[in-house]
Nucleic acid binder design. Sequence first.
DNA 1: CATGAATGAGTCTTCATTCAT
DNA 2: GATGAATGAAGACTCATTCAT
Lengths: 191, 191, 191, 191
Amino acid sequence: MRQSDENKKIAIGKAAIQLINSVGFDGASISKIAKVANVSPATIYTYFENKEDMLLKLYVMVKKELAIALLQGLDESLDIKKGIHLMFESLIAYSEKNIESFAFKEQFANCPLVANVCEDEELRAVIEPLKSFIEKGKRQNILKEVSIEYIGAYLFHPISTLIKRKYAHQEKLTEEEKNLMFAMGWDAIRK
Amino acid sequence: MRQSDENKKIAIGKAAIQLINSVGFDGASISKIAKVANVSPATIYTYFENKEDMLLKLYVMVKKELAIALLQGLDESLDIKKGIHLMFESLIAYSEKNIESFAFKEQFANCPLVANVCEDEELRAVIEPLKSFIEKGKRQNILKEVSIEYIGAYLFHPISTLIKRKYAHQEKLTEEEKNLMFAMGWDAIRK
Amino acid sequence: MRQSDENKKIAIGKAAIQLINSVGFDGASISKIAKVANVSPATIYTYFENKEDMLLKLYVMVKKELAIALLQGLDESLDIKKGIHLMFESLIAYSEKNIESFAFKEQFANCPLVANVCEDEELRAVIEPLKSFIEKGKRQNILKEVSIEYIGAYLFHPISTLIKRKYAHQEKLTEEEKNLMFAMGWDAIRK
Amino acid sequence: MRQSDENKKIAIGKAAIQLINSVGFDGASISKIAKVANVSPATIYTYFENKEDMLLKLYVMVKKELAIALLQGLDESLDIKKGIHLMFESLIAYSEKNIESFAFKEQFANCPLVANVCEDEELRAVIEPLKSFIEKGKRQNILKEVSIEYIGAYLFHPISTLIKRKYAHQEKLTEEEKNLMFAMGWDAIRK
DNA sequence: CATGAATGAGTCTTCATTCAT
DNA sequence: GATGAATGAAGACTCATTCAT
């Protein structure tokens, strides 16, 4: 029996992300993805149940990857502002190393299709340390009394949007922009 | 009696926005839109060059409408924080009165198709008062030295996202949420 | 506005029946039918909702046509055996003039897809005279006390099967075969 | 423990017949059959040359099985009418014990694909006793001078159709129906 | 012998758009 | 100006079959 080829699955995922970034989910047809991934359209269906399933699986994968990158080096003992800043920089670093994945994630962040993905068990577990770090900040009276969604909305979302916009013009963030955005985000969430 | 021309155009626009909100741009086919608007598919082409043109025109229209609503009552003589707060409340008020248009605008805010729409001449003009109000705030040393995009990113974007999410669950903003978000946004942009 | 073209619908129906006869329902793909009918595949969908709807509509049409042919000349005052023989001959005559339609009907006579077609209102009405003729035969103590389905099963079904088989070999019924089959059918149903 | 080869072939045949009965020949895809039979799609090709070959082999198999059942107990010395009746009852008995096989056979009785199967050598041999029994009936001047096909058409076909129809509604034949149909069939073929 | 992976060809259907009236 | 008919191209997906193990 022929062996399942993990490389093939990766190639398909990469092709899909690339195409979805450039022409959108509906524009990225199965046959186009197949062509880019250098497989037959039918082959895609041996790795994913259908197009929507593919999107979902890729989204969860990228989201998990990003979460892990974000939390790299985060330590309960870290000073709150320093920890927050670390994550802020990690986000930027990740986006620069994985710009395609990053753009892909951004595109679907607010898509109804993936709305309930957050309830993915594994993903929840990965995010746990972030949550407790924030909680600590609130207990120390350093951060405002807000749920984690708000942290995302003011700390991560604006910078993500900017990165995405720069990417569209094939530009990169300047040091100045990073500093400004961190300052604004920090002011928004700190007490 | 056959409806007059302008009514027909409005009916098409409304149908398109409704459908795009519920099934996405690609899901909202010309013939479906035509059916909802009670016209022939061919008729749509007497009002718009093609589907993409339709999206663009509707987007600009809504964006302008929103900009006008936002600036309603804004006066150069107004205290900076009060002016900012006024716009913040106007945004919410608009979204509650025009939830379909609002959701439509949000859906395409980050779509490459409409990326260059900001350069629409008329739109630029409408936004002018906002710009000069912000400039005043900076001159008065009340606001941070940031371009207008950042104001949007911290003051309008997070609340818009929340409204959209609430809308998806058919909920509404609470007074508490509004206050919190204004506080965070204001802290982000003020000096 | 372009006029609906009845010829086109007929061409599609004819092509469909022809193809279904020679390669079966599943073998007769929409695109093959379109090619034979000399229209675009999409055009078929302006005349029929979908493939199944097409089959059903064609089946009802043919069935009605056949029923009308069968009852041609049937008169309540006719002698029972003569009336039965008239229908028997009409069936053969119809099959010889409309062999494609006839074969098509036969193919689907027992197909679950069209099982409930008999309940088609119009069809029911068309068949009414046949029913009352049979009833008369039973009242006159000439025919066995059986429901109309049995009449079909012994009088019409065997001859239809034979016609179909002959058609497959491009042959025709002989006078002898006709006589024999009428005799057998008549003996089966008469008292 | 892996099932033995012959079991596997039987499992495939059973799965195929089942599926073909419920979704038709084209609806019963090789991979679906494989799933039901609990084998790999490729395995099916070690037992059958291709899908059509599978249908044919299964059809001949069932047909032979039925023929054997039909002739069980038939004896040259038997009274003609009794012998005919015996076969009639055997047909019913077989159909009730092997409803899936029976329905399968019926479905393809008139399919062009299997048209020439009757010329299968073995099958011919099995049917021989039936033929000579009929010949005897003709010689005794009890049966009409008709070929064996006509016996089938009037004696076996109508009852088969009724069984099939009942099966579709998950009903069974009543004693009354059996008697009536035998009477009609017998009247049709007897002199 | 048995298998799951792989695939090109094909399925039905819908699409944005144009044509003829 | 307005329309329904018409269409070639494309959509997601499944198929019978073969291949490599």
